[in-house]
Computed example of a mutant assay.
Amino acid sequence: MQRALNGLIGHHQKLMLKTQLRHIDFLADEIKQLDEEIKERMLPFDEDLELLDTIPGVGRRTAEQILAEIGTDMDQFPSAAHMCSWAGLSPGNNESAGKRKSGRTRKGNKELRSALVEAARAAGRTKNTYLSSQYHRLAARRGKNRAAVAVAHSILTIAYYIVKRKQPYIELGPTYYEERKRDTVIRQSIKKLESLGYKVTVESVA
C-alpha cells in the first residue's frame, strides 16, 4: 500500500498540475473581486439584506440574489401573489369540468426561482421552524421537488412582506400549521379511529 501511494509523477503530470493550480488561483482571485464589487453595490440595501437573512434557509448570498431580482419597491407588485406568479412559483390553473388537471408552475424568473428552491431545501434542513415543517409535510405527500417549490413560494411571500414592512421574519414554530388546523386534525383523527372500530369521546383538558 505504501508503494502504491508513492506513485510516479513525470514532467507532463507536474506541468498539468501547475496549470490547474494556477487556473484555480486565477478563479479564486476573480471570485474575490466580484464578491467585493457585489458587497460595495449592496451597501445601500444592507438593512433589507439583514432582514431577509432572518428567513430560515436564506443566507446572505441568497438574500442578495432575491433583492437583485425583486428590488426594494414592493409597490411595483399589486400583491405577494402577483410577485410569486412573476417569479414562476405559482401553480398553473388548468381546470376543466371542475377537475384540476395540472399543478405545474408557470414560467418565470429562472434565476430567482432556482435560488429560492435551493433556499427552500436549506430551510427543510433547519430545526423547529415552520418552513421545515411545511417542507417535510408536503414532501411526504407530494414528493421533495414539489415540496421545495411550495416552500420557495412561501419564502418569496415572506420576503415580499419583510421588504415592504421593513420588519424581520417572525418564526411561527413547527406546530403552527397543526394548531391552525386543530379542529380539522381532531375530526380526521376521530374519523380514523372510528374506521378502526373505536368509539371516541373528546374532552378538553384545558
Rank of each mutant, 00 (worst) to 15 (best):
Y177N: 09
A68F: 10
L49Y: 03
K14S: 14
Q33G: 06
N6Q: 12
R125P: 02
L8P: 06
I9Q: 08
N94R: 14
I31C: 06
E64T: 11
A159V: 04
N94F: 14
K144A: 14
T126F: 01
D73S: 10
E64C: 13
G92H: 04
G10S: 04
D35I: 00
E194S: 05
Y198D: 05
R100S: 07
T201N: 02
S154E: 10
K110W: 08
A123T: 01
W86H: 01
T19R: 15
G173P: 00
T19D: 09
F26L: 10
V200T: 03
E179Y: 06
R104E: 11
A115D: 13
R137Q: 03
R3C: 08
I66F: 07
A28C: 08
I24N: 06
P44N: 09
K110L: 14
A123G: 04
M83S: 00
Q65C: 15
T157S: 11
L138Q: 00
L51Y: 09
S102L: 09
T19S: 12
A140T: 08
I170C: 13
L196C: 11
R142T: 02
E30N: 06
A140S: 14
L156Q: 05
A68P: 07
A97W: 12
Y177M: 04
I9R: 15
R142I: 11
T19Q: 14
E194Y: 01
E179H: 15
A140L: 11
R106E: 03
N94A: 14
R125Y: 05
I66N: 02
E30A: 04
A147S: 02
L17F: 12
G197M: 07
Q76S: 15
K107W: 13
S195H: 05
R100W: 15
T126C: 10
G108S: 11
L52W: 08
P78C: 06
I38Q: 14
L15R: 15
Q2A: 15
T126W: 04
E69D: 12
H153I: 02
N6G: 12
V202K: 01
A147Q: 01
A150G: 01
R165Q: 09
F77I: 06
Y135E: 02
K101W: 14
Y177V: 08
A97I: 08
R22K: 12
L138H: 00
T157G: 14
L193Q: 03
K191D: 08
A4G: 09
K181N: 11
Y135V: 00
K192S: 09
L131H: 00
L193N: 02
T129Q: 02
Y135S: 04
K199G: 05
D46S: 14
I31A: 03
S79G: 07
Y160H: 07
Y169D: 05
T175V: 10
A139E: 00
G197R: 00
L131R: 03
L8E: 11
T157F: 11
H23M: 12
M16C: 13
V163Y: 05
S133A: 09
G98W: 09
D35C: 05
Q2C: 10
S102A: 14
L15P: 04
K166F: 09
I66L: 06
A152G: 08
E179C: 13
R22Q: 15
I9F: 14
L131W: 00
S189N: 11
G92K: 08
